[in-house]
Design a protein around this nucleic acid. Structure first.
Lengths: 174, 174
DNA sequence: CCGACCATTCAGTATAGACAGAAATTATAG
DNA sequence: CTATAATTTCTGTCTATACTGAATGGTCGG
């Protein structure tokens, strides 16, 4: 993995860009891409060299990936360094990331909306309108949460099967 | 809407932060929040004043929101200025944004993965491994696309109903 | 066709976040 | 316990992007 092939480079760079578009640090995303493509766990130093970034940057980024639970440190006999490897299961990786982001972003937003509805002074001008709008948004986030909770319990593939059922139902109904 | 209430301020600021975490410009998100809460369409000038940003900034941001189709210009009798209003339907707004982002980000990623699989030189060291990994990722994105296409066709609420069915099925099965 | 009013574009500036390198901390072998 | 290797933390620098203000372009009433 010291030298990257063209395809590997392309993948890593693209993944980095995707990361930035979704609010994920470019280096974090690139490191994940590298580890995902690597057939063996890599020490921080090798990651830094391969991607031409500072070791410290690798350290911080790895830490974030560990927080998400999609990268972990493994030990190699006769080597004191930590070697890092990425989870292999793509569905599980995304599930973990989605779950964390829900916790970090969706949940606080729901909380904010709930508080807003509480704090709303009915005597304020246009309070009814504001309440209606915020309630609608809160309803949406509640639904998303419900959806998420239900999906979490289903084995991979079931969701798609169910949706296909729905599509058929819809076609029959016209 | 010239003066914002506490609740409105809170909502707009939070929405702006959420935006940045998802790769959406803070001002764009804030303007959307303002318009979403506004009972009437607002002219650019008023938006700029209310949020304390430059008019030009408002112009660019509104343009982006229009691209997404969640904000549109309306005309008010006796006023030459454009007034902007946000879509009201929360589900529809998110559906539009998801669809656009899929087109801009998911689709090109699938394309990249497909090309990678084509370009992979089988003689390269570890080509089999790389192929397997990229194929797994491509499979995931294909599934997501399929999911998205199916969901698009379903009326609001159906998805949740189906998922509840799935949960029940799963519980019965143990 | 002119003047006023809006909206947009553009070039320069400011700022937030990413990143590097040094310093500090922790761990391990001898 | 010490020396060395590895990792993490921290501070300053840099870069990408957001944003401003000025200039430009367009539209409408008169």
């Amino acid at each position: 993995m010291a030298e990257l092939t063209g395809v590997q480079k392309q993948y890593i760079l693209h993944w980095g860009e995707m990361g930035t578009r979704w609010g994920i640090n470019r280096t974090v995303a690139q490191i994940h891409a590298l580890l995902y493509l690597s057939p063996r766990a890599l020490p921080a130093e090798e990651i830094a060299e391969t991607l031409s970034v500072a070791r410290s940057n690798v350290s911080t980024s790895i830490r974030e990936l560990e927080t998400w639970g999609i990268v972990r440190a493994v030990h190699v006999l006769g080597d004191r360094r930590e070697h890092y490897e990425s989870m292999k299961d793509v569905w599980e990786m995304f599930r973990l990331v989605v779950e964390q982001r829900k916790r970090r972003e969706i949940d606080p937003t729901r909380e904010m909306l709930r508080k807003s509805l509480e704090e709303l002074d009915p005597k304020e001008a246009g309070a009814d309108f504001t309440r209606e709008r915020i309630a609608a948004m809160a309803g949406f986030f509640d639904a998303v949460t419900e959806l998420h909770d239900q999906m979490k319990q289903l084995p991979t593939g079931t969701v798609r099967k169910l949706l296909r059922m729905g599509t058929k139902m819809r076609k029959k109904a016209g």
